[in-house]
Amino acid sequence: MKAAILLFPGINRERDMVLAVRQSFGHAPQIVWHKETALPAGTDLVILPGGFSFGDYLRCGAMAAHSPIMPAVKAHVERGGYVLGVCNGFQILTEAGLLPGALLRNASLRFLSMDTMLKVERADTVFTSKWQTGAIFRAPMAHGDGNYNADEATLDRLEGENLVAFRYADENRNGSARGIAGIFSPNLRVLGLMPHPENLVDPLMGGTDGKPLFDSLAAA
């Protein structure tokens, strides 16, 4: 699995993502600046890390969704390529129309910087194969706009087609509709989630709860 990590101005979790990918994949991913118009040849997985791209101006992810690299990401998705968006990366994917719905301001209006518990909704995907369905794991979160929302028909479709990837398993602190923390595209090749599995991949970080995500991808 050859990974490319997109870098937009204001993104700040790209090094955490490099570390997590390198540890599981055995080789380092390539960093791709947002002004590029093509992905490195042979890219299997595109990762959009967390942060505050373009200072969250207008809406979180709105500017990055129109960056020069994004047409190449859309073409990658159309070819059936894998995409992982975490936190701001998830927001960018929804703004780009690659995943449905939107991330609104946390219902409490508070920035949430704490650990949460996530439930794995299905383990038969390239992102989750190293977990069991129903497994509960810990993941740090750090966001002000993580309140997942979509119209009722979209939420029903996501649940009906089993496209919810993760749900908040302890407390739904940001107010997300139906406790949704992450979703898949219909072909299960695009995953977006708000919490940060990449920040728990080494005992030195306080745990390895997030490592199965990267081990799953490495095994795909």
Binding site: T94, A150, D151
Partner: peptide, 8 residues
């Protein structure tokens, strides 16, 4: 295209 996110 940009100024509003018509989803929300």
């Amino acid at each position: 295209k940009l100024l509003a996110n018509t989803v929300i």
